[in-house]
Computed example of a mutant assay.
Amino acid sequence: MRSRFASDRGLTSRMVVTMFLLGLLYVVFVGVLISLGVRALTVLVVAGGLLLVQYFLSDRIALFAMGGREVSPQEAPELHGLIDRLCALADMPKPRVAIADSDVPNAFATGRNQKKAVVCVTTGILRRLEPHELEGVLAHELSHVAHRDVAVMTIASFLGIVAGLMTRFALYTGLGGRRNNGQGGLPIGVIILLVSVLVYAVSFLLTRALSRYRELAADRAGALLTQRPSALASALTKVTGDMARIPTRDLREAEPFNAFFFAPALAKGTTLATLFATHPPLERRLEQLANISKQLGRG
């Protein structure tokens, strides 16, 4: 389905290159396994099953994990009103709307396509943001829906799942034979373990890079849709600043879902390495929004 969300050729090309590298890495990985005489069919079937479950049930899984519940227009009229307006502007179907009872100020979108999508906000972000700031956040999340980012990231994570399963397969099964007909050399299990760990590490870095590109693209598309990049910048600044006042225990509970969130939940003592994992630095996002403001002739 098409929408009026703006595309970004630069960011799109980076995402395409990243996906290509992931695919290339997958082909090389399978080729190495075959050359070692490993029957990886079972692992691929299991990994494929996990991928399908994650792909088709991502909306339900995410809502359940975050404790979100769908709300009707009567229960949350202001929230529904903002999403109605944005969907009309973007010329896209309206997703389901949900609220999670959490003081962590955040929002996320999930679902494999526009028909199965759900946008969820926390009670924490509803309390903290002004309507125009919340609109900027919702435009960001609707951009994820329009561009099918959940499906893209699910597919991109497939190689990491396969590599992780192959590592366990090598550790817990009888892949202990040696190459060269048993005349010295490393055990096959050790080779598979080393290759799987390397593949997992590279795929991890590539998928995190893809996640960062996707966040920048959503910031840009959302800001251009509302024509108010300053509202999104204000929301980003406010949400990131308020994270410091959230109890560490609550942030640690939320951190596993950082890849879904509008802004990552960072517990005290967390370095930029965690931010690197799923989102671009706040300064980079604000810089892009400032440039968009200049392009639009606004401060």
Rank of each mutant, 00 (worst) to 15 (best):
I191Y: 04
I192N: 00
E253W: 10
A231T: 02
A209T: 15
M153L: 15
G222K: 00
T248E: 14
T154K: 08
G189S: 12
R220S: 12
S157H: 09
A273R: 12
I161S: 15
L159P: 01
L193V: 07
S203F: 01
L194Y: 01
K268P: 08
Q183P: 00
A235K: 04
R285T: 11
L171A: 11
G269H: 07
Y200K: 05
A244V: 13
I155C: 13
V199D: 01
K238E: 04
L286D: 06
P229I: 00
A263V: 15
E283I: 14
I192T: 14
G177E: 09
F276R: 11
F276P: 01
I188D: 00
I192G: 00
V150Y: 03
I161D: 00
F158K: 03
S230N: 10
V199Y: 01
A151T: 14
I155W: 14
N258T: 10
K238I: 05
L198V: 13
T240G: 03
M153N: 07
Y213T: 06
Q227R: 12
S211H: 08
L266T: 10
F204V: 02
V202P: 01
M243S: 02
R220P: 00
T271A: 10
I161Y: 02
S211T: 10
E283L: 12
Q183D: 08
F169T: 06
R252Q: 13
I191N: 02
M166K: 05
A259Q: 10
A235M: 07
V202Q: 04
G174L: 13
F260L: 15
G185T: 12
A217S: 13
L251K: 13
S234M: 08
D149Q: 13
T270M: 10
F158E: 02
V239C: 05
E255T: 14
V202C: 07
R214P: 09
T207V: 15
L272K: 11
V239G: 00
L171I: 14
S196R: 03
I192K: 02
G176N: 12
V197L: 15
M153W: 03
N180S: 09
A170L: 08
S157V: 06
L232W: 03
E283Y: 13
S196A: 14
R178H: 13
M243T: 08
S157T: 15
A244T: 13
D219G: 07
A263L: 05
A170Y: 02
R285M: 11
R220T: 02
P281H: 12
A156T: 05
F260V: 01
A231E: 09
A163G: 06
N258P: 10
L206C: 06
G189T: 12
G176K: 11
R168T: 12
R208G: 15
F262D: 00
A263H: 04
G241M: 11
I192E: 01
A277P: 01
A218M: 07
L171H: 09
A163K: 03
P280F: 11
F158P: 00
R179P: 02
S196V: 10
T248Y: 06
S230R: 14
T278F: 05
A263N: 03
N258I: 10
E283A: 13
L236N: 03
L193I: 06
